[in-house]
Simulated assay, not measured.
Amino acid sequence: MTAVAAPPARSVSTRRELPVLDVCKVGGALGAEVRGITLGQELDDPTATAIQVALAEHQVLFFRDQHHLDRSTQWQAAARLGTPTQPHPTVKSRGTDLLELEGAANAWHSDVTFVDRVPKASLLRAVTLPPYGGTTVWASTTAAYDALPVSLRHLAEELWALHTNRYDYAEHGRSSYSDNTYYQEFTNEQFETRHPVVRLHPETGKKSLVLGQFVKTLLDVSAQDSRALMELFQQRIIRLENTVRWDWRDGDVALWDNRATQHYGVADFGEHRRQLHRVTLAGDLPVSVDGEVSQTVVGNPENYSPIVAAPTLPL
C-alpha cells in the first residue's frame, strides 16, 4: 500500500514547555513504559517532542493498549516522531511502507548497520503473538561503553569495523530469517560499510558501541584479533545489567533508539506464529570520536533513505 501522508515531525532544536509524560522505568540501564499516550497522526507537537526527549533518555519506550493502530496509522504515528524511510534496503516483498516481520531473528543486532545511514529509530507493533515466548530483549550500547575500563574505551575508540548484509542467520540456530527465500532476498544486493566501533550520539553527545551481527571484521587488525576483540566488546554489551526484556501483549508498541541499542528477538515459541510490523525512521551518518563519518565500501544506499540533520533535543 502507499503510505498515507502525515504531518512531518517538527524541529526540536529549541527549548519549549513540554508536557510531563507518565513514564515508568522498567530497566535500570534502559527501557521505560509511557502511559496515557495515544499514538497516531493527531499527536501534537509538544507531546511528540516530549516522546523524543524520553527516547533519548531511556533508549527504549513501550506503549500499551495501542489497539487502534493499523498499517496506515502506525506509519502516521512514526511520522510524528521522525522521517519514515523505506522498510529495508533489500527486502521488498514484506511491505512497501513498513516491514512485516515473521518469526524472530534470534541474534543481537542494531537494524541495518550494513548501510552508512544507520536508522535513527524503529516503531514496532505487535500484530500476531504466540501463546508463549517471543519476547524481545534490548541492550544499551551506551551503558556498555560507559562500563568499560578506560584502557578498553581508548582501544574501542581507535577501532573501525566492516558491516555487511552477507550474514549467515543460520549460524544462530533456529531463526525464521535463515529461510532460504528470505536470505536470498536479504542478500540480493551486497552492502558493506565502514563504521567506527564507537560513535557519538547526535542528540545526547554520548558514546556508544556500534557492533552486532552485521559486523564482518574489525579493520586494520588480524583476523584472530578481530574475532577476540569483537567477542570481548559484544559480551560487554549484552551483560544482563545492560538489558531490558519485554513480554509482548496485544496492542503493544515499542519505540527504540537504534543508534544506542541492540536487540534480540527470542525464537522460543515453537511452530506458533509471531508477526510484528516495523516502521523505520531515517538516521544520520555515524560520527567517530575524532569526527570521521562512516563510509560506504560496497553498494549504493542512496535509495534507502535520505540523510537527515539530527535535531538537538532540549535535554
Score class of each variant (00 low, 15 high):
residue 312 T to S: 14
residue 202 P to V: 10
residue 63 F to D: 00
residue 13 S to L: 06
residue 219 L to W: 00
residue 86 Q to A: 15
residue 35 R to C: 09
residue 156 A to L: 04
residue 286 P to Y: 11
residue 102 E to M: 08
residue 53 V to K: 08
residue 170 A to D: 02
residue 156 A to M: 04
residue 8 P to D: 14
residue 298 V to C: 12
residue 67 H to F: 14
residue 194 R to C: 12
residue 125 R to V: 07
residue 167 Y to Q: 04
residue 235 Q to Y: 14
residue 180 N to F: 10
residue 91 V to N: 11
residue 174 R to Q: 11
residue 44 D to K: 08
residue 116 D to W: 06
residue 228 A to T: 06
residue 62 F to S: 09
residue 167 Y to F: 15
residue 156 A to R: 00
residue 247 D to N: 11
residue 213 Q to N: 12
residue 294 S to I: 07
residue 273 R to K: 12
residue 94 R to L: 03
residue 151 S to E: 15
residue 203 E to H: 11
residue 168 D to H: 05
residue 193 T to R: 12
residue 152 L to V: 12
residue 2 T to P: 08
residue 83 T to W: 06
residue 149 P to H: 04
residue 72 S to Q: 05
residue 106 N to V: 00
residue 120 K to Q: 12
residue 41 Q to K: 10
residue 70 D to M: 07
residue 34 V to I: 13
residue 249 R to Q: 14
residue 291 G to A: 02
residue 268 D to L: 11
residue 78 A to I: 03
residue 35 R to Y: 06
residue 248 W to E: 01
residue 39 L to R: 12
residue 24 C to Y: 05
residue 257 D to S: 11
residue 304 Y to G: 02
residue 299 G to W: 10
residue 242 N to D: 14
residue 149 P to D: 06
residue 16 R to L: 11
residue 159 L to N: 01
residue 209 L to I: 01
residue 22 D to L: 07
residue 190 Q to K: 14
residue 287 V to F: 08
residue 32 A to V: 05
residue 221 V to G: 08
residue 277 H to T: 03
residue 180 N to H: 10
residue 150 V to I: 10
residue 89 P to S: 06
residue 118 V to F: 03
